[in-house]
């Protein structure tokens, strides 16, 4: 139905933005998608929350998923690293491929190591800042103290938090501000070098300045991993994303480059939502 094949996707050129990375304007035709979902259906008990979602996520690109609340965009994001399995009575049909490997055949621990996630509400553990960042590497077997310290510093730098916290690494993560906590969670996710980073409305609880910092961060991270961000803020999608998918009532209504979605959407529903005439 509304899903897009590779060839369609390569038609539009991602629009240029002042802060976007050098690679953004390159044609994508040759690059295979990092992840793709094929005819994905999702059920909470008897209720079907997602209908037949087919969608590709391109390597080293930011894909935004937008739509009104309850449209299924977060549910979809949560199936990409199978974190939905922590909720009872959920069921998935269809396939999700990571580098053409079915994620449902992969051990969840391995999968989630490769696909990091940042949640809507920042969720630092009740530990020190350093221990929060070191958590992922530690559970994945990094033991040597110098290795751990190195990965903590590198991850905090990548999350642009190092300068702010380098003198208080041993203090509780709860001493940080809301925006810093969210960047700490990003640093924590980056510490395991994920190939894909999922962000579930990461800025919804933050002020504009903290939001801008996180958006800057996403540009910088783009050449290191593939990013999928769920947002209800259309301006945010327009600012950061190369591709945008519009969800409505559990269906993917339209998927294309951000430029096309925001300037010349093909579907009436998309246009109504973008222009604020929705509902």
């Amino acid at each position: 139905m509304s899903s897009s094949s590779d060839s369609e996707l390569t038609v539009g050129k991602p629009h240029e933005r002042p802060r976007s990375h050098a690679g953004a304007g390159v044609r994508l035709a040759a690059a295979p998608p990092k992840m793709r979902s094929v005819n994905l259906n999702f059920y909470y008990g008897a209720f079907q929350a997602l209908h037949d979602i087919s969608l590709d996520f391109h390597t080293n690109r930011i894909t935004a998923l937008i739509g009104p609340s309850g449209c299924g965009k977060s549910t979809f994001l949560r199936t990409l690293n199978r974190i939905h399995e922590t909720v009872r009575h959920t069921r998935v049909e269809g396939r999700i491929l990571l580098d053409s490997e079915d994620i449902f055949q992969v051990e969840t621990t391995t999968l989630r190591r490769r696909i990091g996630m940042v949640f809507q509400k920042s969720n630092p553990f009740p530990k020190s800042i350093a221990d929060n960042v070191a958590y992922g590497p530690r559970v994945n077997g990094v033991r040597r103290k110098t290795d751990v310290e190195e990965v903590v510093e590198r991850s905090l730098r990548r999350a642009a938090l190092w300068e702010e916290v380098k003198d208080k690494l041993r203090e509780s993560a709860y001493a940080l501000s809301g925006g810093q906590q969210q960047r700490l969670c990003i640093a924590r996710a980056l510490a395991v070098d994920p190939e894909v980073l999922l962000l579930d409305e990461p800025c919804s609880a933050l002020d504009p300045i903290a939001t801008a910092k996180i958006e800057d961060l996403l540009f910088d991270l783009k050449d290191q991993c593939t990013i999928v961000i769920v947002t209800h803020n259309m301006q945010q999608a327009a600012r950061v994303a190369d591709y945008t998918g519009f969800f409505l009532l559990g269906r993917l209504v339209e998927f294309n480059t951000t430029e096309v979605i925001f300037k010349t959407p093909a579907r009436k529903e998309t246009e109504d939502y973008i222009t604020g005439r929705f509902g």
């Binding site: 949640f119 958590y135 559970v139 395991v192």
Partner: peptide, 24 residues
């Protein structure tokens, strides 16, 4: 959200319990 945070980093369930849930 603590449990999901730990699982999303690739912790197995028992490691998640032992290193995040029980300490908290």
């Amino acid at each position: 959200s603590m449990r999901e945070g730990a699982l999303a980093l690739g912790a197995s369930k028992w490691k998640m319990i032992a290193t995040v849930v029980v300490p908290a």
